[in-house]
């Protein structure tokens, strides 16, 4: 039985197969409308996450299956002190596959070790969020054409953002990708990620201003810069505009550049950018459903 704990659990070849399936689902949704008839997905969310949970539920419903679960720990047996191991043993009796989100890091792995059904890590604290990374990879593959040979700018909070760390690690398995890290000094990419880039002989550069590099990017991956991450208000006020993507900044970008964001957005992408055809963050959310559909089918061993 297969689980998904980390985006690196799948080999590049397995990911190719998964993304091919997701692309086919995108093109021929009707073909897959009943592949999960009679199957149930349990969404066990120990902390609230509307988007991820709904994306999983939409994926299962699109496949003809049904969903059950809870959306916060207080409405589950965890509130009575039940362990994750016990909960998953019980859920295994009710559902065919389970997506679990938990504030404690490693909780989905504990669940997987005791489960009788496939378990998907839907986010465990600041540790892993593999289906977001799969979503990002599928979006890049679909909109850029492939996962090799491009310049990607990652902009914003590169220190604490698990989404960014996870995406970099996943992209390091592909070829000829140039990384451009755009962040304030306080939020620069951690040294251990830089070490991994050096070990793999990946090319990268670190800059403070988005304006300086936006013209050379094929992909711009925006993240939120939170005020509370700065040591003082003065620095925040001085730097915050560097990381807000505006129509003027988009004028400097390539015509083929695609803009991604894991969402939710606050103010780091001006709403006027939404109408730009290069703004692909809402399409990205749609790809999140396709990739979860493909993942559910793969882990359940189903074919279209």
């Amino acid at each position: 039985m297969r689980h998904l704990m980390s985006p690196l659990d799948f080999t590049v070849k397995e990911l190719d197969t998964l993304f091919n399936l997701a692309s086919d689902i995108e093109k021929h949704p009707g073909k897959y409308a009943h592949v999960c008839d009679g199957k149930k997905l349990a969404t066990c969310f120990y902390e609230p996450s509307t988007r991820t949970r709904l994306s999983f539920e939409a994926a299962m419903l699109n496949l003809g299956g049904s969903v059950l679960g809870f959306s916060e720990a207080s409405s589950s047996s965890a509130a009575k002190g039940e362990s994750v191991s016990d909960t998953i043993r019980v859920i295994s009796c009710y559902a065919d596959i389970c997506a679990i989100r938990h504030p404690k890091e490693g909780a989905p792995m504990v669940a997987a070790s005791k489960s009788l059904i496939p378990v998907i890590n839907a986010g465990d604290g600041g540790h892993q969020h593999p289906t977001q990374t799969l979503t990002d990879l599928l979006t890049i593959r679909s909109l850029h054409g492939n996962l090799n040979g491009f310049t990607i700018g990652l902009c914003g909070d590169l220190k604490f953002g698990r989404t960014v760390h996870s995406l970099i690690r996943a992209l390091l398995r592909y070829n000829n990708i140039h990384f451009v890290f755009i962040s304030p000094e306080e939020l620069r990419i951690p040294d251990y990620i830089i070490d991994e880039l050096n070990e793999q002989n990946a090319t990268y550069e670190e800059v403070i201003k988005l304006d300086d590099v936006i013209g050379k990017l094929d992909i711009l991956y925006m993240t939120r810069v939170q005020r509370e991450r700065f040591f003082n208000e003065e620095d925040y006020v001085r730097l915050k505009d560097f990381y807000i993507l505006t129509k003027e900044k988009m004028d400097m970008a390539k015509k083929s550049c695609i803009v991604l964001h894991p969402l939710p957005r606050v103010n780091e992408i001006s709403v006027e950018v939404d109408d730009d055809p290069r703004a692909c963050y809402f399409k990205q959310a749609q790809y999140g459903v396709y990739v979860r559909m493909a993942l559910i089918m793969t882990l359940l061993g189903l074919e279209g």
């Binding site: 191991s85 404690k104 890091e105 504990v110 465990d124 540790h127």
Partner: peptide, 9 residues
């Protein structure tokens, strides 16, 4: 933040 911090067994 590790799961071992709350699940003693």
């Amino acid at each position: 933040r590790c799961i071992t911090s709350i699940e003693q067994e």
